[in-house]
Design a protein around this nucleic acid. Structure first.
Length: 378
RNA sequence: GGAUGGGUAUGCCUAGCGGCGAGGGCGGCGGACUGUAAAUCCGUUACAAAGAAACACCGCAGGUUCGAGUCCUGCCCCAUCCA
């Protein structure tokens, strides 16, 4: 249940109520694909850094340890010890990212497991069944994230199929939620808008899926190689054609700047591997741009990553120490950096919410972007 | 004093055993990464040049050879061992 608290321009401040608690939006979901945030960050850590929603992946958990296993152990919440909302991505993105290992058919997608090569079939029904077994708070519809660039013809066919798949997802979800042994009988379903950078396909599809009466709507297939401006433009043109009383989720995006721009265009949910991946790669996000802790200039730097930051890493450790850990390939270095980055994202979302409530979003965004730009490593 | 093993590029270490304008690793620097096959990947790290015959002390000096980092001789350093 989505409740709009207030708007500032097109930026929305809302509350999304789920069986696992209320999500304050706009929100950044922390990505833990296989049921764990890469970089040795525990769910205990997530509590400490203000994570509201954790995101896991249908395909990956199906491959290992297997959704049946997770179900036997009481569902993903119990399994990974996380009682707040979990959103599971449907496996649709793997149709894109594992393009070399799959075949798309009308009934679904045939994958060769990236782990051991065995054949895996996943269609809308399978994806829903797996997500129901995982018992996530929010399930995503099974879609195709089409590549960029692609021809208009390819996109039209792909989007039409994604729509047909959505109907099957909805029906299967309703069936699963009514079953006796389903763990989360109130599992929500978000539909996914596609269409690449073809504005008319996007809008047409947005209108079409809006008729399904789902719990939320996502913009998929963006940030897959198209220029930022084009992505912002598509968001701006598409969001008005999605239900106004439902949350909008921009999948897989993005950089802090991407998020600031998208919030301004009415997006409520975000997720991205950047804070975790870049953390593992030695980069720290700060209000003055990105910082590469691997650089020699931090060798004797006893400052925290970001002075004034209240994350566990910055409260206790210096840049020099974290650099040393990274150089020494100690896991603690990655963990501290990823923790800092996730905290940074979560904190920024908190600031965004406050700025919208205070009606000063445009100003906040401008100031924030200026800060990023002045950074030494930005 | 003797024995043995080494000295490879203006960061460090190392491959190399007659065709080397010398391969690799680390360290350094830079880049990439957007619903995670990624604690990853890519580039660069003497000078000069971007050109088919141009110039890098492969510890130093000679020698053998069409050709030597590679073989021979002497010397200088380093390590370990024996006196």
């Amino acid at each position: 249940m989505y409740k709009l608290i207030c708007k500032d321009g097109n930026a929305k401040r809302g509350e999304f109520t789920t069986v696992h608690g209320v999500i304050q939006t706009p929100v950044f979901m922390n990505v833990g694909t296989v049921g764990a945030i890469k970089g040795a960050v525990s769910t205990m850590d997530l509590k400490e850094i203000g994570t509201q929603v954790e995101l896991s992946n249908t395909y990956h958990l199906h491959v290992r340890p297997g959704d049946e296993v997770v179900k036997k152990l009481g569902g993903l919440h119990k399994f990974m010890v996380w009682d707040k909302p979990i959103l599971t991505d449907s496996g649709g993105f793997q149709v894109f990212s594992l393009a070399g290992l799959r075949k798309i058919k009308e009934e679904g997608v045939y994958f060769n497991s990236h782990v051991d090569g065995r054949k895996i079939f996943m269609g809308p029904e399978e994806s829903m069944r797996i997500q129901s077994n995982l018992a996530s708070t929010i399930a995503m519809a099974f879609d195709e994230c089409a590549p960029h660039p692609c021809t208009r013809e390819y996109m039209e066919n792909s989007v039409a199929r994604t729509t047909r798949w959505l109907a099957r997802c909805k029906a299967e979800m309703a069936r699963l939620n009514s079953l006796e042994d389903t763990i989360n009988k109130k599992q929500m379903l978000f539909g996914i808008n596609q269409g690449g950078t073809f504005e008319d396909i996007r809008i047409e599809h947005a209108k079409r899926i809006s008729e399904f009466g789902l719990d939320g709507y996502a913009l998929g297939g963006l940030a897959v190689g198209e220029p930022h401006e084009e992505m912002y433009d598509i968001i701006e043109k598409t969001v008005p054609h999605l239900p106004q009383d439902k949350p909008v989720y921009l999948m897989g995006v993005g950089t802090p700047a991407n998020i600031l721009e998208a919030v301004e265009r009415g997006v409520d949910f975000f997720d991205c591997v950047y804070p975790a991946r870049n953390g593992r790669h030695g980069h720290a996000y700060t209000n003055h741009g990105k910082m590469n802790l691997l650089n020699a200039k931090y060798e004797l730097d006893s400052e925290p990553i970001e002075p004034g930051c209240n994350c566990p890493a910055c409260r206790h450790y210096s840049r020099a120490y974290i650099r040393h850990l990274l150089k020494a390939k100690e896991m603690l270095g990655l963990r501290l950096l990823v923790t800092h980055n996730l905290y940074f994202y979560n904190k920024m979302m908190e600031e965004i919410r406050q700025a919208i409530e205070e009606g000063g979003y445009a100003q906040y965004k401008k100031k924030k972007l200026a800060g990023f730009a002045e950074g030494e490593d930005a």
